[in-house]
């Protein structure tokens, strides 16, 4: 018998541990989610620690989405009209977290006030015990207004607030800093830009243990390979000890996969594409699995079927770790 010497990488760095949700000090969560802490490349338990398995979040929108895929509309049914019900159902389907989008606050989609946004967040918090990610409507001014109000009203809940971008990070970071929340730092598919935003946030003295980074997801067939390689490079840099890349990574898989034609079109597509019901889930699962392999720590999904498949895959991937 030949002895094979297994090459083991000795990494000097580790991904930071980040905890979402709190059940004390103002926090009312019945469960919390901790991600990060890896000292090896994804799922290579033989050369480092993988203390926390990646978490699955389900996206919930505060108004019935008008532009979602018919497959998603059919699957969620009436729950789409009520974010609290929707969130509760998502938890039943296996979500570790809820990612709540305050889309109705967008000036073009209802322009609801910060007060109304706070009420919605309260209702969802009351409906589920899992931690919350809260996304603003996606315009700088309104994001600032809404997220600051939500942050103040939910002090201590340890929400993850998004999106924090280079152009507007200051207000959201300050709101997180003052109220015990986390931020999600999003940058456009680039290692350096991701690192730069972490530096800027850290310069404001928000502990990096309260920062998730979103390297911006490209869906399967729509730039997935860029995201994949950027995440691999970020994770390698983190393990090699670059302190400004050691944030756990969150990927908005569902949003990106389901907005593509493959996730929406039921008719007038080539036969080789298969049926929409299978195709949508296949697109979401493939995007998700690929990014898990490159270091994703939180996946934000849309379809309960994908949650199930990925939960099983994660069981398998983290077996024995």
């Amino acid at each position: 018998m030949t002895a094979v010497e297994i090459p083991v990488e000795k990494w000097s760095g580790a991904v930071r541990e980040v905890t979402l949700g709190s059940s004390y000090g103002g926090g009312t969560r019945t469960s919390t989610v901790t991600v990060g802490g890896e000292t090896s490349l994804p799922f290579l338990g033989f050369e480092g620690a993988l203390p926390h398995r990646p978490a699955l979040a389900v996206e919930v929108v505060d108004m019935k989405p008008a532009d979602w895929s018919p497959e998603l509309v059919a699957t969620w049914g009436d729950d789409l009209s009520d974010p609290a019900n929707w969130a509760a159902r998502a938890v039943e389907e296996g979500a570790d977290l809820i990612a709540l989008k305050l889309r109705s606050c967008h000036p073009d989609f209802g322009d609801r006030s910060a007060t109304e946004a706070r009420a919605t967040v309260d209702r969802v918090l009351a409906a589920v015990g899992v931690p919350l990610i809260v996304y603003g409507p996606g315009t700088a001014d309104k994001d600032n207004e809404v997220l600051v109000a939500v942050a103040e009203a939910t002090k201590g809940e340890q929400l993850a607030l998004g999106l924090c971008e280079e152009k507007n990070y200051r207000t959201i970071v300050a709101a997180a800093l003052g109220n015990g929340h986390l931020v999600i730092a999003q940058t456009p598919i680039d290692v350096n830009l991701a690192k730069q935003l972490n530096i800027l946030i850290s310069d404001m003295r928000l502990p990096l243990e309260r920062v998730l980074m979103d390297p911006n997801t490209g869906a399967l067939g729509y730039g997935l390979e860029y995201t994949y390689s950027v995440m691999e490079r970020l994770r390698l840099a983190a393990l090699m000890g670059d302190a400004m890349t050691q944030q756990p990574m969150i990927c908005t898989i569902g949003e990106e996969s389901w907005r593509q034609k493959e996730g929406r079109a039921a008719t007038d597509v080539p036969e080789a594409w298969g049926e929409l019901a299978e195709r949508g889930v296949a697109w979401e699962v493939t995007t998700a699995m690929t990014l898990l392999e490159s270091g994703a720590d939180i996946l934000v999904l849309r379809h309960p079927g994908s949650v199930g498949v990925l939960r099983e895959a994660l069981d398998d991937l983290t077996k024995g770790a």
Binding site: L220, G221, L224, E225, Y228, E262, E271, A272, W273, G274, E275, E278, R279, V281, A282, W283, V285, T286, T290
Partner: peptide, 13 residues
């Protein structure tokens, strides 16, 4: 077919 299409696309990516 849906899964095969996804895999072939991933491989291309």
């Amino acid at each position: 077919p849906a899964a095969v299409y996804a895999l072939l696309t991933l491989r291309q990516n």
